[in-house]
Design a protein around this nucleic acid. Structure first.
Length: 306
DNA sequence: GCGACAG
DNA sequence: ATCTTGTCGC
């Protein structure tokens, strides 16, 4: 089974470790979660904190002191709105943290960094590296029908739709699944946000080939969501992303650390995920990329209707 | 100061 | 993708 940590829970548990009178930063919290790349995701998660110190109706142990988290240079950072930042400053001053010129005074002395954490993202990186060994980059599929999959969100709930097409690109059937999402978007960890929903949809129907919005091996650990889905579900899979996640573009070819991992096809950055060659991935996207927006529309409709 | 940073 | 609480490196 595919287990995903509740990163909101992990993040809030860490924030509770910051003592009154001290502050920490989004980046230090991200490091405690296991990867500094999650700094923005930390900010996003704190933005969804429903138990801030502005809540007077909750017992103290339920409160999450997200006002104690500031930017890496000591500036105050966000708190929902411009008005919210005033609240954040007031809460900090009440705890003995002075704010001068929009920055925490004596920032270095006030900075808390001794988090006790299992660094969950570190484990996930290890899992990605392990799974990457199973990627197969030769054609091992029958091009009969194929599925295009996309995801939409409404708050903490995700909606996944897979539209199945036949070889002429005629639309056949749509399958959909939804799930509560406890993992924010973090660059290079997309699978941990979306794969649970994708696996649910694949329980309803397994097409002979799958096209996913995102990367395959065009990823620092070769484990973009299309590779991750392909290996975990053991299904032929291609990734098509609308923007580049690292790598160098040389003509139509995309390289990572000198290795050819995919192609730019029209507006898409294409890389194989599993059981598909780089060349076939390119040909299939060239032929069918006009259908990708249909899956996006299907996911959106699912999200609105539910 | 601007871009990188899948969705 | 939504909805708006980053950070680092050039």
């Amino acid at each position: 089974m595919f287990q995903v940590p509740d990163l909101y829970e992990e993040c809030f548990t860490l924030v509770k470790q910051i003592p009154a009178g001290m502050v920490s930063t989004y980046g230090i919290l991200a490091k405690a979660l296991g990867d500094e790349i999650a700094a923005r995701a930390v900010g996003q998660m704190l933005g969804e904190n429903q138990n801030s110190f502005l809540r007077s109706d909750l017992p103290e142990e339920k409160l999450i002191p997200c006002h104690r988290v500031v930017y890496a240079d000591g500036r105050i950072g966000g708190f929902t709105s411009e008005k919210g930042v005033e609240d954040k400053i007031r809460l900090l001053e009440r705890e003995g943290v002075r704010v001068q010129d929009g920055k925490v005074a004596d920032f270095r002395e006030k900075l808390f960094q001794d988090f006790v954490s299992s660094e969950p993202l570190k484990r996930l990186r290890g899992e990605q590296e392990k799974l990457a060994e199973k990627i197969w980059l030769e054609d091992d599929f029958t091009l009969g029908e194929f599925g295009i999959l996309d995801v939409a969100y409404r708050g903490r709930r995700g909606y996944c739709a897979m539209v199945v097409f036949d070889l002429n690109g005629s639309q056949r059937t749509t399958f959909a699944a939804t799930a509560e999402i406890n993992f924010p978007y973090i660059p290079t960890y997309l699978a941990y946000r979306e794969l649970p929903m994708i696996l649910k949809v694949l329980e309803y129907y397994r097409p002979s080939l799958l096209l996913i919005d995102g990367n395959g091996i065009l990823h620092p650990r070769k484990m973009g969501i299309a590779a991750h889905a392909g290996v975990v579900a053991e299904i032929p899979c291609i990734g098509a992303a609308k923007s580049l996640l690292g790598g160098q573009l040389e003509g139509e070819k995309i390289f990572i650390r000198g290795e050819h991992v995919g192609y730019k096809c029209g507006k898409y950055y294409v890389s194989p995920g599993h059981r598909v060659s780089i060349e076939s991935a390119r040909k299939i996207v060239e032929r069918y990329s006009h259908l990708i927006p249909l899956a996006h529309g299907a996911a959106k409709r699912t999200a609105i209707l539910k």
